[in-house]
Structures are given as structure tokens and as C-alpha cells.
């Protein structure tokens, strides 16, 4: 997706093409080291094939998905679906040497690592628990819940399709 600006300018001058190439290279590097894989090795997520929706979809839309579930939960009392924040925490929280969970918004943990990189402040954890704490209903199999966001499946499928064709080399995505 990111690359299309450059690849669809066939009539550009040599200089521009060179710059574009340089940029492409840079973008490639950044992608590898920066966006590559924020999934914490010790988390449950590291052992799973996919997030609750395809990775490409989640990267761009996780906030919409979470917000939708938020209202469904607060007003409708539906907590068992797969898009709950507690599900995110349960699956993505990392563990230290003593097998104790590390707050998910700590530096270099799943949420903060990416949010710091993208310079987007997140305030979910002003109120929400940063480690799974106390029994909760939807933490056992977050991926097994059903989706409540209309059109999520089709959008997610489209995202996977486009990701498959455009960013094939980006294999280890999660």
C-alpha cells in the first residue's frame, strides 16, 4: 500500500526515480526493523497464527473494532465477543523470567512499542487493567468469540487479499 505512490509514476525524471528508489529502500529498512513484529515473544499471541482478524486488518482498524465492542459491552452487556480489550491484553501481554505478566503499556511491550513508534497516545490503560487480573469471561479463548462489527469479515478478507498481492515479502506479520 505504502509503495504505490512511487511505483505508479512511470514518467518521472531519473533524479526523482533515484530519490524514489532511495526512499523505497529506506522504507523497506524501517519496515523490517520498525513495524516488523511488535508481538512480544513470551506472549500467547506469539504462538498463534493470526490475531482475531487478519493482521493487516487489525493494524489499521483495531481501534475501531475495540471501540465498537466497548459500546456493545457497556450498553448491551455483551462481553463474550472476540473484539474485547481484555482479550487483547490476555493474548498480547508479555511475561518476565519469573512468569509474571508485564504491563502491556510498559515501554517495549505490545501496545506501547507500536504506539510510541507511531507517536499516538493511548489512554485505554488509565482505567483498564494492564495485565489479566481476576477471572474474566472472555479471556480463555478470545479468538473463539464471534464478531459484532458489521462487515468486518469482508473488510478483513479484502485486507488479506491486498496484503497478499502487494506486500508478499512481508511474511512474518502479526
Amino acid at each position: 500500500m505504502r509503495d504505490y505512490r512511487f511505483t505508479t509514476v512511470p514518467g518521472a525524471s531519473a533524479a526523482v526515480a533515484l530519490t524514489a528508489l532511495l526512499w523505497l529502500g529506506l522504507a523497506g529498512t524501517v519496515q523490517a526493523t520498525g513495524i516488523g513484529d511488535f508481538v512480544v515473544g513470551s506472549s500467547k499471541a506469539a504462538g498463534l497464527e493470526n490475531c482475531v482478524e487478519p493482521t493487516e486488518y487489525m493494524r489499521r482498524n483495531h481501534m475501531e473494532v475495540i471501540r465498537h465492542q466497548r459500546d456493545t459491552t457497556v450498553y448491551g452487556g455483551i462481553r463474550s465477543t472476540k473484539h474485547s480489550l481484555s482479550g487483547c491484553v490476555e493474548c498480547h501481554v508479555g511475561y518476565d523470567d519469573k512468569h509474571q505478566p508485564v504491563a502491556i503499556d510498559d515501554d517495549d511491550q505490545f501496545c506501547s512499542a507500536c504506539h510510541d513508534y507511531a507517536a499516538v497516545t493511548l489512554n485505554c490503560f488509565d482505567c483498564h487493567a494492564t495485565v489479566p487480573q481476576g477471572e474474566a469471561w472472555n479471556q480463555v479463548h478470545p479468538t473463539m468469540g464471534h464478531s459484532l462489527v458489521p462487515g468486518v469479515e469482508t473488510q478483513a478478507a479484502a485486507a488479506t487479499a491486498s496484503a497478499g498481492s502487494a506486500a508478499a515479502p512481508e511474511s512474518k506479520t502479526r
Binding site: 452487556g77 455483551i78 462481553r79 481484555s86 482505567c127 489479566p132 487480573q133
Partner: peptide, 25 residues
């Protein structure tokens, strides 16, 4: 410290919710 089932943060009001999390379960 907060529980997963009971979020809580500075600047908000709260009160008994009849253990809504239990009911929802």
C-alpha cells in the same frame, strides 16, 4: 491496580452496578 472486570480511573464517577459482569456471564 485494577481488575480486568472492573476498570477504574481518575476523574470518573462510579457506583454499584449490581455485579453486571456476573449477569452478563
Amino acid at each position: 491496580q485494577k481488575l480486568t472486570r472492573a476498570p477504574r480511573g481518575k476523574g470518573c464517577v462510579e457506583s454499584c452496578n449490581l455485579c453486571a459482569h456476573r449477569l452478563d456471564e
